[in-house]
Amino acid sequence: MRINPLLAKEFHQRMRTARAPIVITVYLLGMVVLTFFMLYENVQGQLYLVQPSKSQQVFVLLSLLQMTVVAFLTPAFSAGSVSGERERRTLTVLLTTPLSPFGVLLGKVLSSSALLVLLVVVTLPVYSLVFLFGGAVPQEVLAVLGFQLLTIVVIATICVLFSTIALRSTWSTVFSYGTVGMMMVVFGALGYGLKTLYQQNPIELFTLHWSQFFYALNPLYVEAALQGAVSAKPAIWLTFTEFYAVVILILLIPSLWRLRPQWFARLSVRPSGSEKQYQ
């Protein structure tokens, strides 16, 4: 089996520079120092009275922090992936190879999320320190890790699709960060706002329903729910996955149009201008 050539090329390109190991090392050191201080705060220099609930708080805080960091880092790697190829004028050649548009998109998604996946995986031993003090079980850590990886792939896919649709990297970056902002802040705020409304008027059940829906679209809330830190429906992550799968499918259509307008030639809708503008 062959690895997607774009993934192999970009991972190779990215990992041979000093920047990638430096980013990973600095990030890891930051997480280690933070974890150490938080755990030290928990034990206060003594090991007779360890509070597992505080250890749980450390775990929740660390994972939420990591989720925020990776969510905002992902567009930096993926928002210019296809538009960058277009701007460098390498996309035309790529599209005359037998590599399909799906292959191009998949390669871009995997290559732009690869470093972030690595960042998340290398912090796993740091999380494991929490086990020493109780409060978290391995299944919880694995669930959090899995959800973080899922979020990275979701954000990377959305950003790559935006970079295919928008002809310029500037616009795709704006759309990508806008989307991450919606996911991380706006949906959370909407969920919180509607829940507050419900608490004031418990009769308005629809506000509770919509509050839960918006919370389910917020990665921080879903992650906290997976750790049992907040109350939520049992399969909240499933709502998250379904919603963003629909978003990705919707964005996929104009993306494919940009890459292979010929595929849509049988429809009465034809792209305006020359195909070369998109390629």
Binding site: R2, A8, K9, H12, Q13, R88, R89, T90, T97
Partner: peptide
Amino acid sequence: FGVYDELTVMEYLRFFADCY
């Protein structure tokens, strides 16, 4: 046309060989 600047000549050819 553009080229992938950060590849060596050999890697560049190898990449396209993989695409094909």
